[in-house]
Amino acid sequence: MGVVVSLEDGKKQQASIQPLIALTDSDMSRVNELILSKAGSDVEMIPEVANHLISSGGKRLRPMVTLAAARMFGYGGDGHVKLATSVEFMHTATLLHDDVVDESDMRRGKKTARMIWGNQASVLVGDYLLGQAFRMMVEVGSLKALEILSSAASVIAEGEVMQLAAAKNLETTEDEYLAVIKAKTAALFSAAAEVGPVIASASKSEQAALRSYGTNLGLAFQLIDDALDYGGNARDLGKNTGDDFREGKITLPVILSYRRGTQEERLFWKAAIEDAGNDDAALEKATALMARYGAIGETISRARHFGNIARDALAPLKDTPQKNALLEVIDFCIDRVS
């Protein structure tokens, strides 16, 4: 590749998720044990496919958010462990399904499950994990938590269909795209954050604060992923850079570059996105156009905007180690472009 987008100028002290990891360490050990237990089955292929993705090195940020959000309000039971595991299973199931829909070959530096076991196995094992997630939600006994997570599952599916409908459509507006990622990505972050205060019997305003935090963290997280696809690395992104472009995905950097470009440049985008003219040379040109029109910088600015909303959502709440760790997570998600 001849063109590399500089995502950020200057260096600063990078934020870390280490405080969140440290605070949730003992609870996450229980979550990891439960993941291995609930991913098991007498049907041999189920644990094979599930563990292929579960053990592939994801940060497990969403379940850690659930655990911290519950402890933040003094929760002392064990329901948060089951809900955190449910959240991770929902996330894993969506990844298995996404890779089939997107025809992805790599995930977190490894071959996707569909490349090893086939599309049918990936979809069905994803369905199995969703079933296990709902069984654990029921075991917790919180109707409100069940409502939040089941609603999120429905919204995520809607987001997938919305993305499918917008696939390769360069007339997609920024508002339409934000609606897609709010459903597809932010809904699970929102639910993961909200169920913590719910099972801790926190006030409605505290539940709303964590819901807003999760939603806006999710939006910021996805927008940074969009930026990284055109200038990050596979380690930060969890997949190969350029994959969104090769798959013809409409993301915010593409939308902005297309709308700001000349007629000739729009013809290039149509050939690349709509007609699958997306080889390495086209990716290099796409990256250069994004640099010309400031599309990556604008995407990062929008991510910062949602990060600030997430930060403001937690501002009125009592200071706790968990609150401070969740605030640092916002900066960590955005600093991935540094």
Rank of each mutant, 00 (worst) to 15 (best):
K239T: 12
E265C: 03
M90K: 01
Y258P: 01
T24E: 02
V3E: 11
D25K: 07
K111Y: 02
S86G: 15
G76W: 01
A15T: 01
T94L: 11
Q120N: 09
G76E: 15
P316H: 05
R336C: 04
T215C: 06
M1I: 06
D236E: 11
K38W: 11
F73Q: 13
S41W: 03
L53M: 13
G118E: 02
S338Y: 11
K184D: 09
M64P: 00
R259T: 14
A234H: 04
K323L: 06
I46R: 00
R302G: 02
P47L: 09
F306C: 06
L228M: 07
S104I: 00
D98Q: 12
I199D: 12
F134W: 07
F221R: 13
L95R: 11
E174Q: 08
L228I: 01
A192F: 10
T215E: 07
H91V: 01
A295M: 06
E88C: 04
Q263V: 06
V43Y: 02
D280Q: 14
Y258V: 03
E176G: 05
V161A: 10
R108K: 05
S16F: 02
G131T: 07
K204L: 15
L188G: 09
V31L: 13
G248Y: 00
M290G: 01
K285Y: 10
D99E: 12
V49D: 10
M64W: 07
R135P: 01
G10Q: 08
V195D: 05
T66R: 02
A276E: 15
E88K: 04
N240I: 13
R302A: 02
Q13S: 08
A22K: 00
E206A: 03
N119D: 15
T262V: 11
L146M: 12
I35C: 05
S301W: 09
I255W: 01
A288N: 12
L317G: 00
N240D: 05
V100A: 14
G231R: 06
L129G: 12
F245L: 10
S338N: 07
E160H: 04
A303Q: 09
A153E: 03
V43P: 04
P197A: 05
K318E: 14
A200G: 14
A315I: 07
L327T: 05
E274I: 00
G58W: 04
P47Y: 03
G159L: 11
E48A: 13
A227P: 03
R211Q: 10
T92V: 12
E194K: 13
I181Q: 11
L53T: 08
Y75R: 00
